[in-house]
């Protein structure tokens, strides 16, 4: 589905985490992004949408995006947009606050 060039990773996440069949997963992602289902695999449309929502983009040496989110920052936005509990985002939040670490008793 063109991965990060379009919306393949987003549809994949709903299949992987929610066990959604393809039509249902495509519909939900399209609704959350405010685009048509057909737009999801159109990298021309999705490059703009991903930039606007901060969902991460394919990097190109001729078009760097230093102001755009890093991978983890993009995944935080994806988790929020799709209302998905992304494991790495949850772990990142837990491990990047002293309060959480103290309450969890993390010694290492």
């Amino acid at each position: 589905m063109n991965g990060l060039r379009a919306a393949g990773d987003l549809v994949a996440r709903l299949q992987m985490t929610r066990g959604m069949r393809l039509p249902e997963a495509k519909r939900l992602v399209a609704d959350r992004l405010g685009v048509s289902v057909r737009d999801l695999s159109d990298n021309v449309v999705m490059q703009e949408v991903r930039a606007e929502l901060g969902l991460g983009r394919v990097l190109d040496s001729e078009a760097p995006y230093p102001e755009q989110p890093t991978a983890m920052e993009a995944k935080m936005n994806i988790a929020e947009l799709l209302d998905l509990p992304l494991n790495c985002v949850q772990k990142f939040r837990e491990r990047s606050t002293v309060v959480e670490r103290r309450s969890a008793g993390r010694a290492t």
Partner: peptide
């Protein structure tokens, strides 16, 4: 795979 091959996962 992510950047050059546009893999979904």
């Amino acid at each position: 795979y992510e950047q050059s091959l546009a893999a979904d996962s």
